[in-house]
């Protein structure tokens, strides 16, 4: 049981690290907290469900569709929302209110568009034969979702470290004012990172029915809470921290489900509390962020 819990926790954690990545990118560059993050994940999930149920589009194809669609939508959404926020005296606080409102609007639109019933994808789409590893069977859908998540984390890392926009984004994460003084296109970089962050959330959403069973309009709030806990555990503003935070979260949840199942929903809050008290800057802290 321990082996299974650990490996399932890693698979689960890699996915949740990927799910939280967009939230962390947006916070790192713009200092705004996207409380609607989970709702964009849910929208990605609905896109996959609708694409599969209406046209039998494989979720792996829906990943590309979600990325393109949500990058465009978020890029358009950026200009009326974010510049005003970042110019305010307290963008973090105002962003909470703004994105909470956006979250409520998206949830209401989900109810109108898709109803309240939970929606899911058949796990057999990803293969009906489980993966046999160390004497245990693991759902193929979980394995493929974790692989997709790892690839996307790698691609995001490459984007941040090997592209001009990525360099600029990391410079803005380090110090926005200095980046601006150096002549970097801060506004354009922010818009692109906002679009990429939402696009990544939607991509995670496409795979989410495989990991969390089903989605409904109210799922977003819980996912935002988990993503936020993961980001704080890893380190706010540090994308690598999301991966580490995701792993800590995933393994903790699976171990709790195995040994103290009644208490498993306490995990994100408990971890958050411990991190805030013991290492407020997160597990990776400032050292890595400034490296």
């Amino acid at each position: 049981m321990l082996e299974y819990s650990l490996i399932a926790g890693i698979l689960f954690g890699v996915f949740f690290g990927f799910m939280a990545l967009g939230l962390n990118l947006i916070f790192g560059v713009m200092q705004v907290v996207n409380l609607a993050h989970g709702d964009f994940v849910v929208l990605g999930g609905y896109l996959a469900v609708v694409a599969y149920s209406s046209a039998h589009v494989n979720p792996l194809m829906s990943l590309i569709l979600a990325l393109v669609l949500f990058v465009v939508v978020a890029y358009v959404l950026y200009f009326p929302l974010i510049p005003r926020l970042t110019k305010s005296k307290d963008p973090e606080m105002l962003s909470l209110i703004l994105f909470f409102g956006l979250s409520q609007i998206i949830e209401a639109l989900d109810v109108i568009g898709f109803g309240n019933n939970p929606r899911s994808l058949p796990l057999a789409i990803m293969g009906s034969v489980p993966l046999h590893f160390l004497g245990q069977n693991y759902q193929m859908a979980w394995v493929i979702t974790a692989l997709v998540s790892l690839i996307m984390i790698g691609v995001t890392y490459g984007f941040l470290y090997y592209t001009r926009i990525g360099y600029a984004a990391r410079a803005v994460m380090g110090n926005r004012d200095e980046a601006m003084a150096s002549g970097l296109p801060v506004a354009q970089t922010s818009a692109i990172i906002f679009a990429v962050g939402i696009g990544l959330a939607a991509m995670a959403g496409v795979m989410s029915p495989f990991m969390i069973g089903s989605i409904d309009p109210s799922t977003g709030l819980g996912l935002t809470t988990i993503a936020f806990a993961i980001v704080v555990i890893g380190s706010l503003g540090n994308p690598l921290g999301s991966v580490l935070g995701g792993l800590v979260y995933g393994i903790s949840v699976m171990l709790m489900q195995t040994y103290f199942s009644s208490w498993s929903n306490l995990v994100p809050y408990l971890l958050l509390l411990i991190i805030v008290l013991v290492k407020p800057s997160g597990l990776l802290g400032r050292g890595v962020r400034n490296a």
Binding site: M1, Y4, A8, F12, Q136, T219, V253, Q257, S261, S262
Partner: peptide, 20 residues
């Protein structure tokens, strides 16, 4: 015989524990 929070949505590990 185990209880899980009503918010539980992931049952794979629980099912594996049951299978044992």
């Amino acid at each position: 015989n185990s209880g899980v929070p009503t918010s539980t949505s992931s049952y794979s590990v629980l099912l594996n524990n049951i299978a044992q």
